[in-house]
């Protein structure tokens, strides 16, 4: 293929969005009763389910116990039906392991782990359908799940991937854009303070452009943050109505 035009002369992307527009985000919290917290989040066609157990006592090897804070344990997996071609190995491959590690780092920065010494928090995330931006969707879903579990966090963690095409940063890449030779960057942000929980980029990008790209990513993350906030408030309203009855 000769390479698709990722950004048309009129400023439209492949799916009709403008450069700074996010995909449509829909989310629900508390989808599983049996877990401590859970959430389902769709960002365009990328769909993820996040489940949180804990904080609870350390399981498995006790040697990992930290005496002043909780241990966060993350596991990322993709459903076999999540991509166009059936996936052979849903979890445990290098990519998933890396992703798990990234999630762990992100949430260690956001969850107030020092409140739960000698305990463990498990976060499991599963991608049900993959259409680009898997990491950021996982982070966003997991945030909602952690909030649903009632674990205190410094702030929402909102993540977004951005790419750089024709000197323009594109927010929230879809799969076609990620594959189109764009240098992409994933950023997880604590929006209120503007702290960066994680920043990951493994493509070539000129140094001069980095600042603009991060700027665009932060704006996009703040947009995501607003949506998440709305979802949480909505959920609380529903729950409070239910309990008051």
């Amino acid at each position: 293929m000769a390479g698709m035009e990722l950004l048309s002369d009129q400023g439209y992307r492949l799916d009709g969005r403008k450069a700074t527009e996010l995909r449509k985000v829909q989310a629900r919290m508390g989808v599983f009763a049996q877990a401590d917290g859970s959430a389902y989040l769709e960002q365009g066609n990328t769909k993820a389910l996040a489940v949180v157990y804990g904080p609870h006592e350390m399981r498995g090897s006790r040697s990992r116990t930290l005496h002043d804070q909780a241990v966060i344990n993350c596991q990322y997996s993709m459903a076999t039906f999540s991509t166009a071609e059936r996936k052979r190995r849903p979890h445990g491959d290098r990519k998933s392991t890396e992703m798990s590690l990234h999630l762990k780092q992100t949430f260690e920065a956001a969850v107030m782990t020092q409140l739960y010494p000698r305990s463990q928090i498990d976060i499991y995330v599963k991608i049900l359908q993959s259409d680009g931006g898997n990491y950021s969707v996982c982070v966003n879903a997991a945030t909602l799940a952690v909030i649903d579990a009632g674990i205190p966090m410094r702030d929402y963690v909102c993540a977004c991937t951005v790419g750089f095409v024709d000197e323009t940063p594109l927010a929230d890449l879809c799969y076609a854009e990620e594959g189109g030779g764009v240098s992409s960057l994933a950023l997880a942000l604590l929006p209120r303070g503007g702290q960066i929980a994680l920043l990951q980029m493994d493509a070539r990008l000129h140094q001069d452009h980095l600042e603009r790209l991060i700027e665009a990513a932060m704006t996009a993350c703040k947009g995501v943050g607003k949506v998440l906030d709305e979802v949480v408030r909505q959920h609380l309203q529903e729950v409070s109505v239910l309990t008051s009855d």
Partner: peptide, 16 residues
């Protein structure tokens, strides 16, 4: 079709 095989691809399409 991608790499010869028939694949079903779903893409979003935003209208304004």
């Amino acid at each position: 079709s991608c790499r010869g095989r028939k694949v079903r691809v779903v893409r979003e399409h935003y209208l304004r």
